[in-house]
């Protein structure tokens, strides 16, 4: 009986577009869905540091290096905002990290692809962060307050990420013949994996229905993917590069582009652990966590010895 009443209040808030806050009553499945989604999002930010970190020591100029350092540091920050947002739902940082390290939790499939050339750093900023922004702009109005607030901060910071990526692409595309080829090669390799970032088609997306019902998501995977394609085509044309999709065609009726679906079999393989870099990414995360163990142990011992009176509880 009590529950029914709480549920009415919860539903009424969603209808009024009010936010749900950490201490509010919420259905158990809403809580679970959020913990899964927010922690996956956090893991993606953290694992996303790896493919880009790969190029910090080889950035082609000091300027490029400090920009990349700042960007990778931002991604780490985004992961931390999101972990703390997930923790407001009653999970702990240890549990969340453990799920990542044991492979129980997922992260964005895109970070299981390798960064082979400097142009990949351009393509990631421009396309991967561009796609992420599409999703994150929507999530600024998600129904869970702490998640929405984290998204507002993240969106403010992501804009620099996308612009720096496109700047790299312009340098290469208007550079030497070899540089332009490098840019084209990166576009060829990143285009379809980027489209996969929006998730499976609506007809096959198991979690979408609840996410829309609870206003966690406000647009579907296909809607966001379409908007991304429509926005990106002109940017590709400006660079003088060719979109690696022969099926791309303007559709006057829907005022948008028709495009070819990515290979969803590949997508399933990559998220279930068989992408080109899954093992490497997970091994890097685990090694980093293990190497930091002595720091956590020392800090815990220090905190015990020097406990602040207000921390006693």
């Amino acid at each position: 009986m009590e529950n029914k009443n709480f549920e009415d209040v919860f539903e009424a808030k969603l209808v009024k577009n009010d936010m749900i806050e950490a201490k509010d009553w919420m259905p158990e499945n809403y809580r679970k869905h959020l913990i899964r989604q927010i922690s996956q999002h956090a893991h993606s930010e953290i694992v996303g540091m790896l493919p880009e970190g790969n190029w910090i020591t080889r950035a082609p100029s000091l300027r490029a290096k400090k920009v990349l350092l700042a960007k990778v540091q931002d991604e780490g920050g985004h992961g931390l905002y999101l972990y703390t947002a997930a923790e407001t739902l009653g999970t702990s940082r240890d549990e969340l990290l453990d799920a990542l390290h044991t492979g129980k939790a997922k992260y964005s499939s895109i970070f299981n692809y390798p960064t082979l050339t400097w142009a990949d750093i351009g393509a990631i900023g421009w396309l991967v962060d561009g796609a992420a922004i599409m999703n994150q702009v929507m999530l600024q109005r998600t129904s869970y307050g702490p998640y929405a607030r984290a998204m507002v901060r993240i969106c403010k910071e992501e804009s620099f990420h996308q612009r720096q990526g496109y700047e790299i692409m312009t340098h290469l595309s208007f550079g030497t013949k070899e540089q332009k080829e490098m840019a084209q090669d990166a576009l060829n390799r990143w285009w379809f994996p980027t489209l996969m970032m929006f998730g499976p088609p609506d007809s096959e997306s198991p979690n979408s229905e609840n996410a829309i019902k609870w206003r966690i998501k406000r647009e579907t995977n296909d809607q966001l993917r379409q908007r991304f394609v429509d926005q990106t085509v002109a940017q590709i044309e400006y660079l003088g590069l060719t979109l690696p999709d022969k099926g791309l065609k303007w559709n006057e009726t829907k005022k948008g582009y028709d495009y070819s679906e990515p290979n969803w079999v590949e997508f399933k393989n990559v998220i279930s652990g068989n992408g080109p870099c899954n093992k490497e990414r997970l091994a890097a995360r685990n090694a980093s966590h293990k190497n930091g163990e002595w720091v956590r142990a020392a800090a815990t011992a220090y905190a015990k010895k020097n406990a602040e009176p207000f921390m006693a509880a």
Partner: peptide, 12 residues
């Protein structure tokens, strides 16, 4: 209020 974080003491 802008968010939260983990730390072992005030300074950290």
């Amino acid at each position: 209020h802008c968010g939260s974080l983990h730390a072992f003491d005030k300074e950290m």
